[in-house]
């Protein structure tokens, strides 16, 4: 394996991706990442100088819609909350992301 992704890098990516991983998983994932990056590195054998990037295949550009409300695609409050793990007085309950200073 040419690439070597460390468990520390995996831990950092896990934080960025907001995915909880255990230490055991970190090591397993690190090996898998190295293997995958080796496959991707094969692309460097090709000459892509002056080759444009293909971000899409349809050729469509600037697809707009009218800035109007489509009654077929709006949810009632009840519908919007239907799959929420936790609600309170018609609101989503989310985890706290800010802490009080000195709290």
């Amino acid at each position: 394996m040419k690439n070597s992704v460390t468990p520390q890098i995996v831990a950092h990516i896990a934080k960025l991706a907001n995915i909880p991983v255990t230490q055991v998983e970190q090591e397993k994932l690190a090996a898998g990442f190295s293997e995958t990056l080796d496959v991707i590195d094969e692309l460097n054998k090709l000459d892509v100088k002056n080759v444009p990037t293909a971000h899409q295949v349809t050729g469509l550009e600037n697809v707009w819609r009218e800035d109007t409300i489509n009654p077929n695609t709006i949810f009632t409050q009840q519908e919007a909350l239907a799959n929420a793990a936790q609600t309170h007085n018609g609101f989503f309950v989310v985890s706290r992301i800010l802490e009080e200073k000195d709290a």
Binding site: I40, V51, T53
Partner: peptide, 9 residues
């Protein structure tokens, strides 16, 4: 970027 260029190829 590299992958999207090879995609063009």
């Amino acid at each position: 970027e590299l992958a999207q260029k090879v995609r063009t190829l």
